[in-house]
Simulated scan of single mutants.
Amino acid sequence: MGYTDIKELLKDARDIASGANDLQLKGILLDIQGMVYDLQDENRDLREENHELKNQKITEDDLIKVGNFWKKPDKEYLYCPKCWGKDDKLVVCNITMQGEQNRVGAVINEKQYGICPVCRYMRLLTE
């Protein structure tokens, strides 16, 4: 029995009650009908949320390891291994260049680092 069947039964009961002219019974039936509509809306919302969550669920099998970082095969982003390992959250790391300065102020030995904007995890991209 689904929501549609319940709504039809409530309509039938309301029609019978209207013939009996019992205001209290009509009021109760209308309240029940309103609750069924609310449950139907809540059920639809929960189904949509469940569908979205299933589509968002990522497992470690969906990721590949690139140095110290995680990556989806079809994306260029590198994800923080600390946030993934702790909370199963994919946080995109920012890429920055850092190097040393020589005596004349020129940057030498510049290397790329990945930095997590959430937990501040920082590692050299290629070790």
Rank of each mutant, 00 (worst) to 15 (best):
V92C: 05
E42K: 15
R120I: 04
K82W: 04
G114L: 05
E52V: 12
Q98N: 14
N94V: 11
W84H: 02
I6D: 03
K71G: 07
K71Y: 07
K26P: 01
A13T: 02
E127H: 06
N68D: 15
L46T: 00
D87W: 04
K54I: 07
Y3P: 00
T59P: 07
K65D: 05
D38R: 13
Y77S: 14
T59D: 15
M1F: 08
Y77G: 05
Y77E: 14
R120C: 09
E52S: 14
Q101R: 15
L39K: 04
R103D: 03
P81G: 11
I58G: 02
L10H: 09
E42T: 15
Y121G: 01
M35H: 14
N21A: 13
L78D: 00
Q101M: 13
D61Q: 12
P81V: 06
K89M: 06
H51A: 12
A17T: 05
W70R: 01
P73F: 06
R47V: 08
E110R: 09
L63T: 03
G67P: 02
I58C: 13
Y37N: 09
Q112G: 01
I58K: 07
D5T: 05
K65G: 04
L23C: 03
D22H: 07
G19M: 14
D38E: 13
E127F: 05
I6A: 10
Y77V: 03
A13S: 10
E52T: 11
R14P: 00
C83S: 05
A17L: 11
Y113T: 03
I32T: 11
V118A: 14
E8R: 13
L63V: 04
Y3R: 04
Y121L: 09
M1G: 10
R120F: 09
K82R: 10
I95H: 02
I32F: 11
E48L: 12
K89N: 12
Q33L: 06
K82V: 08
D61F: 06
K72H: 09
G19K: 13
L78E: 01
D5Y: 06
D41S: 12
T126M: 12
Q98K: 15
V92Y: 01
G114F: 02
K65V: 08
K72M: 11
Q98W: 08
C119A: 11
V91Q: 01
G114K: 01
E100R: 15
K82D: 11
L39A: 03
T59K: 12
N43S: 12
Y37Q: 08
L29H: 00
L23H: 09
L78H: 04
K57N: 11
G2I: 07
M122C: 13
D22N: 15
P73W: 07
L10N: 06
Y79A: 02
K11N: 10
C116R: 00
P81E: 08
T96W: 02
C83A: 07
L10R: 07
I64P: 00
L90F: 05
L78S: 02
N50E: 10
A17H: 08
R123V: 02
C93I: 07
D12A: 08
M1Y: 06
A20D: 13
C93W: 00
L53R: 14
G19Y: 10
I6Y: 05
K72D: 01
L63D: 02
N43G: 06
R44C: 04
G85F: 02
V91M: 02
E49V: 00
L39E: 08
L9H: 12
G2Y: 09
M122A: 13
Q101G: 10
V91F: 01
I64A: 00
I108D: 10
W70H: 04
P73Y: 07
N102L: 06
